[in-house]
Amino acid sequence: MGVKHHIADEFLMAYSAGILPEAFNVVVAAHVSLSDDSRARLGAYDTVGGAVLDTLEPAEMSGGALAATLARIKGSGPVDRNAQPRPAPSVLPAPVRDYVGGDLDAVAWRKIGGGVKQAILPTQDGARVRLLYIPSGMAMPDHSHGGTEMTLVLQGAYRDDDGEYHRGDIEVADEEVHHTPVAIGAQDCICLTASDARLRFTSMLPRLAQPFLRI
């Protein structure tokens, strides 16, 4: 089944610009790993970034900059041009595996009651990103949205007021949303979720993005 719930443009643009907190970057990178639609839109925003670079007023480099760079290139030895081996398909997309230090079996789960488990990934910036393991039929732990919350499904599925979310689907909730997601289906649900009480992102960027960058 293909991904049905894609991330909104303002987050893709902010990810491309590099202005999101790291915790949200992890979720966006993981979602883009699973959604070709979001990957293509991200490509468009990276292209805007390239155009920004192209049209920017250049700064003057120091006199010895080129020589210094050429010396560094020569000093850095031959480049390994072999392609990276393709990773075997796994539940965790590559950017999440990087933070976990392995695949699902390397996750340091902590029980938080009712069969639900979580593992917080190490990121900077105050925002938190965690893996959640919710047995099928169980509700996600009680939580409120003081700011913005992103939830990406990696295994199984969940359902809330807005619909069903399967692998690769992403949901962004803000303080106005009150939902009680429940894990559904044959498999237990594994989600990646980031939240930041201070991040009122959805109210900030759409006004920039909408007039001219909406795709």
Partner: peptide, 14 residues
């Protein structure tokens, strides 16, 4: 920002 930059997984066809 002294942060890592998580990048999307490369496409399978590489």
């Amino acid at each position: 920002r002294r942060q890592r930059r998580p990048e999307p997984e490369d496409l399978p066809w590489g």
